[in-house]
Design a protein around this nucleic acid. Structure first.
Length: 652
RNA sequence: GCUGCUGUAGCGUAGUGGUAGCGCAACGCCUUGGUAAGGCGUAGGUCGUGGGUUCAAUUCCCACCAGCAGCACCA
């Protein structure tokens, strides 16, 4: 091999072209050799799939890809550089502030700072202005490599104790890089854009919050600044519009606008359901009830208030007491607690009378009102509350029936979500935590049964190691709504604890007493939360079968009030939820009002319709109307108002 | 629970050391009008709660409660 050949390396470009260049050539050099346009557009390179700085010397044969603003990787680069820019601006404006970490997150980034004085919302525009100033200065990026000791000493001398801690904790073989943007520098793995001007102007600081160092409540609380950054102004504006759209779907807002429910401070974390909201609730409940009846569940109702001794026996008193509401009465010495879960109650019912293996499995369901003292900061509308109703069930069975029951419960969950309009569902298997009860053999079997159930159903799942409950492993079902947000709702959990503690038994085929296995399972999870999810998923525009008011009959003149009432009566007879609007208002006004109230059908009745026995039907979201015979309206609406499970049954 | 912010009529908001306005909604009257806001009028607030400062507090201070954003939590 000649000396020159030893100094040459082969670079393969994405189109397959191969270039021979001198060892140590950078991505910038190669981009320049391809063309001046690309040289200008280049932000970074990918060397054998790894993102690198443009000036990173390439030392061996490699596949190389030039990353421009159009590349998928550009956003990550821009966001991370913006995070640095934020830190640089903050340290320029607020000397003495320590930097910690500043990772990318979905749609943006954040940076955590240690500073005694808190940031206020007024600081954001100031910081942002400073950031734009730094962009205009076009500060060049310079990468340096330090020894560990040198870096630690350096950052400690600067008073950057968090950075020093981060460096100390880096794996031994990791190269310690410090990036300079002009005079300012930060420890960073990179890569970075070659100068601050490459970031562009499409960024915005969005909010401030507290955050614990390393996410641990026992550590110091830092101040986090969130921001978003995009390739260009258009992308930024699209994003801001998306946020606005999401705000419009907010169930708290729609709940108020559609008069579904309210909350008030005397009952923090609990919901006052208004007639319309409760109609929605009952419709959903009736649907779930049909589903479980079809799946051979029995429904029960158990007490809300149970004696402390029962909770001691179940283990909740020891493990869950801080989250339980307690009640006392003047005349009695006993302490009662409001149930945070339904399981102990269900085991009490199971334990009434001796069960045979022939009775199993017993699938015991309850729409159980539970109360948990959730931390005040966790409360959120009707999504995270202190008083909620689980569509709960416990399945008592022989251990060998476990896989079938896991499959049955999972199938019910998938089917329900699909019928309710959620196609995309993900499953997680949470396995044994550090702190647990039960032998390894029992855990092995339970984890196996959950996994086996998924496998046989052909549903993929991801592992969530160590995240199981202390009493058993679980499957968690996350559904994705219309704007792509995930909601963990359903769960299937194995429980070793309760049957043991309450000494549940069944008589086996051989006449011996055996302990049944138990599965907890919820489909919607919390009714309150699920109604919230439905509101946000549909943005309040519910499918007809769920809509609290399915149609309003709006009159044009008072002469037809009688006809409108008659129509309403006929529709009600057909099982439809309708209201009349006989007010002395113009039809424009009525149409506007009921459209804003998201009523699926407006049935307009004027003189013509009253004479012909017809209605002018206008669908929500349409500006057209069509005139139909009353019978046809009823037939049409009856068809569309059929709940999805009944539609499926009718088709079968 | 932690950090920050907020709390004025049902909702959305203005405002001030001298006991409060506006819009929408509500209610009443007039208008009976063909598919997204007709007109006029009336009523509604101990300005989150409790203390303090002051001649005087909705306004300033403190505490508490609740809400919002995030963190932490989420059997």
């Amino acid at each position: 091999m000649s000396a020159s050949a030893a100094n040459e390396i082969r670079i393969t470009l994405p189109d397959g072209a191969v270039r021979t260049v001198t060892r140590g050539t950078t991505g910038a050099d190669i981009a320049a050799s391809i063309g001046p346009g690309l040289a200008k557009a280049a932000l970074a390179v990918k060397v054998n799939g790894d993102l690198r700085d443009l000036d990173w010397p390439i030392e061996a044969d490699a596949r190389l890809e030039i990353v421009t603003r159009k590349s998928d990787d550009a956003l990550d680069l821009i966001r991370h550089d913006t995070a640095h820019l934020l830190a640089q601006a903050v340290q320029a404006l607020y000397p003495g502030t320590q930097v910690t970490i500043g990772p990318n997150i979905e749609d943006g980034f954040y940076y955590d700072f240690a500073r005694n004085e808190p940031f206020t919302p007024d600081d954001l525009p100031k910081i942002e202005a400073k950031m734009r100033e730094l962009v205009l200065k076009d500060l060049p990026t310079r990468r340096t490599v330090w020894s560990r000791d040198e870096a630690v000493r350096h950052f400690l001398a600067l008073g950057e104790t968090y950075k020093a801690e981060i460096i100390r904790d880096l794996p031994g073989d990791e190269e310690i890089r410090v990036y300079y943007h002009g005079d300012w520098h930060d420890l960073c793995r990179g890569p970075h854009l070659m100068s601050t001007s490459k970031i562009g102007n499409a960024f915005k600081l969005t909010r401030i919050s507290g955050a614990y160092w390393r996410g641990d409540q026992n550590n110091a609380q830092l101040q986090r600044i969130y921001g978003t950054a995009w390739r260009d102004e258009k992308e930024l504006n699209d994003y801001l519009r998306r946020i606005e759209e999401a705000e419009k779907r907010d169930h708290r807002r729609i709940g108020r606008e559609m008069n579904l429910f309210h909350v008030q401070e005397e009952a923090a974390g609990q919901v006052f359901w208004h007639p319309k909201g409760h109609t929605l609730w009952r419709t959903l409940e009736a649907y779930v009830r049909r589903k479980i009846e079809k799946n051979d569940y029995v429904e029960v109702k158990t007490p809300l208030l149970l004696d402390r001794t029962l909770w001691e026996r179940s283990g909740h008193w020891a493990k869950y007491r801080e989250n339980m509401f307690q009640a006392e009465v003047a005349d009695e010495k006993r302490t009662l607690a409001i149930k945070p879960m339904n399981c102990p109650g269900h085991v009490q019912i199971y334990n009434q009378g001796l069960k045979s293996y022939r009775d199993l499995p017993i699938r015991m369901a309850e729409f159980g009102a539970c109360h948990r003292y959730e931390p005040s900061g966790a409360l959120h509308g009707i999504m995270r509350v202190r008083g909620f109703t689980q569509d709960d069930a416990h399945i008592f069975m022989m251990p060998e029936q476990m896989v079938d029951e896991v499959i049955g419960a999972s199938r019910l969950i998938f089917e329900t979500y699909r019928e309710l309009g959620f196609e995309n569902v993900q499953v997680k298997l949470s396995t044994r935590p550090e702190n647990r009860i039960g032998s390894d053999e029992v855990w092995d079997a339970a984890e196996h049964d959950l996994a086996e159930g998924c496998r046989r159903m052909g549903i993929p799942y991801t592992l969530n190691p160590g995240e199981g409950a202390f009493y058993g492993p679980k499957l968690e079902f996350t559904l994705f709504d219309a704007i792509g947000r995930g909601w963990q709702c359903g769960t299937v959990q194995v429980d070793f604890n309760l049957p043991e503690r309450f000494e549940a038994e069944y008589v086996a085929e051989d006449g011996t007493r055996k302990r049944p296995a138990m599965l907890h399972r919820a489909v919607l999870g919390s009714m309150e939360r699920f109604v919230g999810v439905l509101i946000e998923h549909y943005a309040g525009k519910f499918p007809l079968w769920l809509a609290p008011v399915q149609a309003v009959i709006a009159t044009i003149v008072n002469d037809v009030d009688g006809y409108a009432r008659e129509v309403a009566a006929r529709l009600k007879l057909a099982g439809l939820r309708v209201e009349t609007d006989l007010r002395n208002e113009k039809i424009n006004y009525k149409v506007r009002e009921h459209s804003l109230a998201k009523v699926p059908f407006i049935l307009v009745a004027g003189r013509k319709e009253a004479e012909d026995g017809t209605l002018s039907l206008r669908r929500l979201g349409s500006d057209k109307s069509e005139t139909l015979k009353l019978e046809d309206v009823i037939a049409l609406m009856e068809g569309e108002a059929m709940p999805p499970d009944l539609v499926a049954a009718a088709r079968a």
